[in-house]
Design a protein around this nucleic acid. Sequence first.
DNA 1: CCAGACGTTGTT
DNA 2: GTCTGG
DNA 3: CCAGACGTTGTT
DNA 4: GTCTGG
Length: 232
Amino acid sequence: MCGRFTLKTPAPMIAELLGLEPPGPRQLELFAPRYNIAPTQDVAVVRTATGGGREAVGMRWGLIPSWSKELPKSAPLINARSESLTEKPTFRGPLKRTRCLIPADGFYEWTTEGKRKQPHYIRFPDGRLYAFAGLWDRWRGPGGAGPVIESCTILTTAANAQLAPLHDRMPVILAPGDYDLWLDGAVENADDLRHLFDPLPAGELAIDPVDPRVNKVANDDPQCVTVQRSLF
DNA sequence: CCAGACGTTGTT
DNA sequence: GTCTGG
DNA sequence: CCAGACGTTGTT
DNA sequence: GTCTGG
C-alpha cells in the first residue's frame, strides 16, 4: 500500500503549507515537480531541525535501521504499520525520536486485471498538498564506516470504506493541525500520538484510473496523472 | 544468560 | 539498538 | 509499488 | 520463481 506517489505542488506553496522558510536553490531542487516517486528514490522529508524549527531534506524512501550491518537485501521498508510500531524494534526508536512529514499531493494504487496492472490515482478533489506521517533513521555505512544514508518510511493504517476495494491498507494522512504534535520531539509517549493514525474518513478523496505508463519508474511526467476517460 | 531476528505488501 | 526465543 | 533481469567460458 | 533497480 502506498508504493508510489506524487509531489507536483509548486515549491513556494509546499514551503508555505508546511511552515518552512521560502525555498532556496536547495529546496527548489528538492521540491521539483514529481509525478512518479518510487521506493529507493530520494523523497522530500520535513523534520524538526537541530535547534528547533522545521527543515526539508532529501532521504531515501525505504527505511534502513541504524543497526543494519549491511544494506538490507530484503524488500525495502517503504511502509510501517501504525498499529504495531511500538512492538517493532525497527520502528520503536524512530517513533519516539525521529518522526517526519512526507509531503505529497497524490498516490497510486493498482488493481490486477488478468495480466494487466491498472494504476489508480488518489488525491483530494482539489489536488491540494498534504503530508504522510513518516519515520526516518540514519545509517552509517558498513561497520559504521561508509557513507551516511538517511532514509524514511510511510505509516499505514486500515483502509477506509472508499479505498477498501483497492487495498486493505492506506497511508496515514495527517491533518495540518497535527503537524506540530507529530514533529514535537518532547512527545515520546505513543499513546499521545495514536489518534493521529485514524484513517481519513471515506469520501474525501477522489480515485481515478490513469495510464499504465506510471507503472514504469522512468516515466515521471504529467501524463502519469492524466485520468483515463471511459471509451463509452 | 547469549543468539538471532529485527518488515510490509501482495500473492500463493 | 531492542526484543524474542531458548 | 512495478519492470526487468536472471550467466559462464573463452576469445577478441 | 526470485532478486535488483528505480
